[in-house]
Design a protein around this nucleic acid. Sequence first.
DNA 1: CTTGGTTCCTGCGTGC
DNA 2: TGCACGCAGGAACCAA
Length: 285
Amino acid sequence: MPELPEVETVRRTLLPKLVGHRIEEVEVRWPKAVRYPDLETFVARLRGRRVEGLERRGKHLLLRLSEGLTLVVHLRMTGRLLYRSATDDVDPHLTVLFYLDRGKALHFVDVRKFGALHLIGEGEGERVSSLWGLGLEPLSDGFTPEYLAGMLAKGKGPVKGRLLDQRRLAGLGNIYVDEALHRAGIFPGRPAGSLTRAEVERLHATIRQVLAEGIAHRGTSVRDYVDGDGRAGSFQEKLRVYRRTGQPCPDCGTPVCRTVLAGRGTFYCPCCQKEGDSTRAKPQA
DNA sequence: CTTGGTTCCTGCGTGC
DNA sequence: TGCACGCAGGAACCAA
């Protein structure tokens, strides 16, 4: 699933190609993908707009358009945003087509159809609730060990749940949360408020580390994810626990376990991430 | 304020 | 080999 590193990779691949293009026509084949405004207004407002920039906030892509408009794209589970030729139309899961000038197109492809598109003007940010209430960017200067400590403080539920909460921290998903917790030597089911200062500092470091490495490897392609050119990433080769049930932990050789926490499949090493353990330090790679 | 359950979808893994 | 079945998963929404 596209998380921060995947969305950032899509942004980086699409940015140099999209900027300067004009949207000539929009074809919506799965109307439910358009969340705001209504379908007719969505298409009418996009027609003729020019692409001026492409930004990322959390897992959202923000396509900056002329007239102060912003197309907000959330890929959710299986969404793909692809820069293609306007005549390339063979993908059975193509849900929205943005026909561009010079014979090109931007294709929104979404197998499971959870992806969401919003078109907002200046001052309409609150129309995209998931964007409006978003927490800090984990790679920004504002994300400090102190911020993480405050985020986890007094939490009785699993630390994993707090890390997945986009209103506290923007961009982490199931893959990178499990990987960051493993590298920090913390069991995902530990009550958020029970982490020691040392553990919070380790976790802060590993969150930034796995996200930076994920971006450097152009994302994790476990199943569906590809970048704006349709190319897979390679961070799946660096995963230590995610979807590796039964395979040896790279650090200690113990078979990786799977459980369910915060409603999500959760992978961890029962040796390196002991429940209730708050004393061990783990060497950083 | 918190946490938990349900919903949306469809490909794929499982079991017979 | 073929088919039925149920799961996975981000976030909105509702409930307690």
